[in-house]
Amino acid sequence: MTVIVSLGKFLGWIGFLTLFHSAYSTYEHLSYLKAVEKIPNEMPIEITVECLISIVIFAISIIMVAGPLKPILMKDEMTKKTIDKVDIRPNFNTFNHRCRSMRSLVN
């Protein structure tokens, strides 16, 4: 499991770097266009693709880093319990509990 988690973290860093790189490229490109006084009409397709790829890389890394989902049905939980935990032996059953005093108080 921890192999997947550390691989996920590594992928996360790669995704972050890719995102940062695409952000910087966009900024540089826009500065260039503003300097040349051209209207920013077209963004190079590579930057857009790089941005989207970084999202995908990040998504995969987050899925790897996040823990597994646990099953919620009580049925599945009960399959993991041994009979000793669930069905108490009659040896250790106490009958001398406070219900006796409650019953006498009520009646």
Binding site: L19, S22, A23, T26, S54, I55, A59
Partner: peptide, 8 residues
């Protein structure tokens, strides 16, 4: 992450 991408 997707917010940052949308801004970029």
């Amino acid at each position: 992450i997707t917010g940052s991408a949308a801004g970029i």
